[in-house]
């Protein structure tokens, strides 16, 4: 039974990791296929800034400013008490899926940079710092740990944002 549990866990782990590593927007088998899009989509976070640090006329918060001319940025008020919406999209026009996939494997997918910049800008505005993971790690890089370690290195660069 124990062997079965282990195999099961690895299968689930493999599935979960594969799913985690799939480009966002692609869904599990029980969900509908994503709509075809021509335009790159807006990546949006809602920020609850500490004071009136951010208004629709503010200069771009770090680290979004670092993305330079490659992106369009919108800053708008969220409804009710929900804060400020920060929206970013690639200016270049859509990339072909082949190029996007290759860049992603090489860790140079611009959408990854956008997600990380948005999450970090939000943290800076809300808490004044970007939260870092524990270091040095207590785990070692082994064949079993490696896939998850690779995935978590991308922690803020992936996901549905």
């Amino acid at each position: 039974m124990r062997a079965l549990v282990k195999v099961g866990v690895i299968v689930v782990g493999g599935l979960a990791l594969r799913r985690f590593l799939l480009p966002s927007g692609r869904h599990g088998p029980w969900q509908r296929a994503p709509l075809m899009r021509r335009e790159p989509r807006w990546h949006v976070v809602t920020v609850n800034p500490a004071r009136d640090e951010l208004t629709p006329d503010s200069p771009l918060p770090e680290p979004l400013a670092g993305l330079g001319d490659a992106v369009d940025v919108q800053i708008r008020r969220a409804p009710a008490d929900r804060g400020i919406e920060l929206a970013v999209r690639l200016r270049d026009g859509a990339q072909s899926p082949v190029t996007a996939g290759a860049r992603r494997l090489a860790g140079r997918d611009p959408n990854q940079a956008i997600r990380a910049a948005l999450r970090e800008a939000k943290q800076l505005l809300e808490t004044g710092e970007v939260l870092h993971p524990d270091s040095p790690p207590t785990t070692q890089t082994t064949a079993v740990n490696k896939p998850l370690q690779m995935a978590t290195r991308q922690g803020r660069r992936e996901g549905r944002l």
């Binding site: 985690f20 870092h132 993971p133 995935a151 978590t152 922690g155 803020r156 660069r157 996901g159």
Partner: peptide
């Protein structure tokens, strides 16, 4: 959470 991608996807 410094790894939001995992639970966002799941």
């Amino acid at each position: 959470n410094t790894n939001p991608a995992i639970t966002e996807n799941v």
